[in-house]
Design a protein around this nucleic acid. Structure first.
Lengths: 192, 192
DNA sequence: CGCCTCAGTCAACAGCCGTAGAATGAACGG
DNA sequence: CCGTTCATTCTACGGCTGTTGACTGAGGCG
């Protein structure tokens, strides 16, 4: 078998360093947000020289862009009830272990235009899927509310760490939210 | 009658200038967040010298603190249904014309510890009120979810200006949310 | 072995920031 | 009318930031 430890080739070492930088950057962007994260601090956390970060990624903007590029779950098409359930499942997955790259976007989206755009770009196709499945005239608003709830919960759990939400289990949260989602996705909720 | 225009006394002029600075600061903190708002820019917007801002408020932190000091609505005690309805009414009020001071806190809370504390301090008593009115064992979690929904909606409407929510009327939003709030506040929601 | 490529380092610059303190000049009180 | 207060301005300092370009030294290869 090939021994992986003794002599990493130059290209391997380079890829490893680039990845180290990206990991450190994701972590810091997620914890501090875009503005308070400095290239010097990222470099220190990755154990390299600040100039190297610039050399590989060109600018802080580009570093943020590369660090936060990630794929969101796709929602299947289907009936409103099915889409609501799929959204709940997606939320449950994110509720234990939201990806750091996604947290970095959420942390920065209120103070950085790029992050806000990235947030919109990631959420829009999902919102369209949801809206398409809701049969009422206010489908877009209902989809917007569902998105607001999902992100409100993630923000308070992971970014603000509020007691009531940070302590609960994903299943508990999802179970409480399920009837709300069904109601918002359903055609005409019963009056009263 | 006293003519208010011709010669403002020195104390009047001072109060007016202080207020101008506070208004400009609130606006900029709400639009840009804490870190991207500079004392120089606030001074320019208020039409005064940057040194004056320091002279009156001592530091940027203190300026932020003074600019974001405002009173939140109080929620009345009562049954779970009543508290849920009061929370909806509070949301409706905030949905047309959220106060700028409050937007400044929301905009900055993800990247500034003081803002996060201020957010927690403003929301906690309300959450306690809600939790106290909910008769189930998971009352605190339910209250946390209600808070997350309220703030998620306000963030997407005013800070991110997402189409589905920014365009809707407060009544529309509140009407859609009412059954959800009742469900979350009610004792045991019907299964299914 | 000897050259070249290239991962990684170092030192420096220009700009912006919060902040401090001296200077100015007009309103006030006696 | 004169001395004092005080709202306001001006200038400057030190620190941190993103970014640049020259430099170093070891791996890859003929």
């Amino acid at each position: 078998m090939t021994d992986p430890s003794p002599k990493p080739t130059r290209a391997q070492q380079r890829r490893r360093t680039e990845e180290d930088i990206l990991v450190a950057a994701r972590q810091m962007f997620a914890e501090l947000g875009y503005e308070r994260t400095t290239i010097r601090a990222v470099a220190r956390a990755a154990g390299v020289d600040p100039g190297l970060v610039m050399h590989y990624y060109g600018s802080k903007d580009e570093l943020f862009s590369r660090a936060t590029r990630h794929s969101a779950d796709e929602l299947p098409a289907g009936t409103a009830e099915e889409v609501a359930e799929a959204l709940l499942a997606s939320l449950a997955r994110r509720l234990d272990g939201e990806p750091v790259a996604s947290l970095a976007v959420l942390r920065s989206m209120l103070t950085n235009a790029d992050a806000a755009d990235r947030y919109r770009a990631a959420g829009e196709p999902q919102l369209s899927r949801i809206a398409a499945a809701i049969p009422t005239a206010d489908a877009e608003l209902r989809a917007g509310l569902l998105g607001a709830i999902v992100h409100g919960v993630i923000i308070e759990r992971y970014l603000l760490r509020l007691g009531g939400l940070a302590g609960a289990s994903p299943e508990q949260i999802v179970d409480l939210l399920r009837p709300c989602f069904q109601l918002l996705a359903a055609a005409t909720p019963g009056r009263r």
